[in-house]
Simulated scan of single mutants.
Amino acid sequence: MTEIHPSQRVAMLADAQNLYHTAQSLYSRNIDYSALLEKGVAGRDLTRAIAYVVRADSPDEESFFEALVDIGFEPKIKEIKTFGDGSKKADWDVGMSLDAVTLANHVDTVVLCTGDGDFSRLCSHLRHEGVRVEVMAFRESTAEELIEATDTFIDLSERQETFLL
């Protein structure tokens, strides 16, 4: 495991859908992405920050995407898929995982902003490769296997005044 040091190279990968829905369901508030990036990087060298978003054709989403860019995130946008039975799906699990594995050779730490337990295997893989893995999410909705698979877990619920708008 890589120890924390000031010149450490960090990549932050934020699952915007997971964060949004959790913040809304728990607190009826939005995520402060500026604080998320600042606290996640924590004085280290930011290599890349990616926010994985889904285009849902809501009125404010374009301004949200622009705000992410202004903060320092690269938004990766996926169109929502509607199936014949009316169900909808759009998730970034595979895309986030591929990006994390690709970035692993270029960073010391990957900060995952998600509570999705599907990423626990990714965390184990990254740690096996010598990459430090930190997760920032709301404990109430974070899979226990994800918390156990990381080097550090930061509970956003414990610092609502910092991470929520």
Rank of each mutant, 00 (worst) to 15 (best):
F153S: 03
T47S: 04
L112W: 08
R55K: 09
G117K: 12
A100F: 11
I4P: 02
G115I: 02
M12D: 02
A51M: 11
T47C: 11
I50G: 04
E79G: 02
F119A: 10
V135K: 07
M12P: 00
K88P: 00
Y52N: 05
R121A: 14
L126T: 08
L98P: 01
V54E: 01
E144S: 12
R55W: 05
S63Q: 13
G84A: 15
F83E: 09
H128R: 15
S34E: 15
V101H: 01
E129R: 13
E3T: 15
V101W: 06
A104P: 07
A56R: 15
D116M: 07
E145L: 12
Q24Y: 09
T162Y: 06
A49M: 12
S7K: 12
V41L: 12
Q8A: 13
F163C: 06
D91Y: 01
R44N: 14
I50W: 01
A35W: 02
I80W: 00
H125P: 00
N18G: 10
W92D: 10
F64D: 09
M96F: 02
G86A: 09
G40N: 03
Y27W: 09
S34T: 08
A143M: 06
V94I: 15
C123I: 05
L26Y: 07
D151H: 13
N30I: 01
L68M: 13
K78G: 08
H5Q: 11
V54R: 02
I4R: 12
V54A: 11
Q8I: 05
Y20N: 06
R44G: 05
L164K: 04
T47K: 11
G72H: 10
R159Y: 11
T47R: 14
V110C: 01
S157T: 07
N105V: 06
T102G: 07
E38I: 10
S58R: 15
Y33M: 09
S87M: 05
S97H: 05
E158I: 03
A49S: 14
G72E: 06
I50Q: 06
E134K: 13
F83M: 09
W92K: 06
T47V: 15
D60G: 14
A90N: 03
M96G: 01
C113V: 14
K39R: 14
E66S: 15
I4M: 04
H106F: 13
E148D: 15
I77C: 02
V111F: 10
D116E: 07
L46D: 07
F64K: 06
T114L: 09
T22W: 00
S28M: 09
V135G: 11
V41P: 00
K89Q: 13
Q160V: 06
L165Y: 13
G43W: 08
S87V: 01
F83L: 14
T142V: 04
E38N: 12
A51W: 00
L146R: 09
